[in-house]
Design a protein around this nucleic acid. Structure first.
Length: 111
DNA sequence: GGTATGACATGGA
DNA sequence: TTCCATGCCATAC
């Protein structure tokens, strides 16, 4: 999606476009996505968008690369958390004993 | 069009 | 550093 199209899209569309930009092996926080989408403070809605992803969208958008500010996973669906962690580890992201990843190391910054 | 909801963030204890 | 309460705001009903 081009930048013009992104700016004209709804918050939901922007979130999907932004998350799609995150390269493998990197992650971003909900607040980062909200800010980049032009709605600072709407971090909660980022989760709301990902919550309602259709199976087809979930297959295209790397939703597993979106984590909370503590570097932890916040998936609400039982099982999704394990899947998310497995996907990230497959991309080279390591988790510590507390189940959190090193944001300072894996965080992706939007342009 | 109003109300309820929620995959978060942040500050204080 | 962890736990609780409060604020925020687009979506879904």
């Amino acid at each position: 999606m081009r930048e013009q199209e992104v700016s004209a899209a709804s918050f939901r569309q922007r979130v999907l476009a932004l998350v799609a930009q995150v390269p493998a092996g990197c992650v971003v926080t909900y607040s980062q996505v909200a800010l980049a989408a032009g709605h600072p403070g709407a971090a909660r809605q980022v989760g709301g968008v990902l919550r309602g992803l259709s199976p087809r969208e979930a297959a295209v958008v790397p939703w597993q690369r979106v984590v909370n500010a503590r570097g932890g996973l916040s998936t609400y669906k039982v099982g999704a958390g394990e899947l998310q962690r497995a996907l990230l580890e497959a991309e080279g992201v390591r988790f510590d004993a507390a189940g959190r990843l090193d944001l300072a190391r894996y965080r992706h910054l939007f342009a």
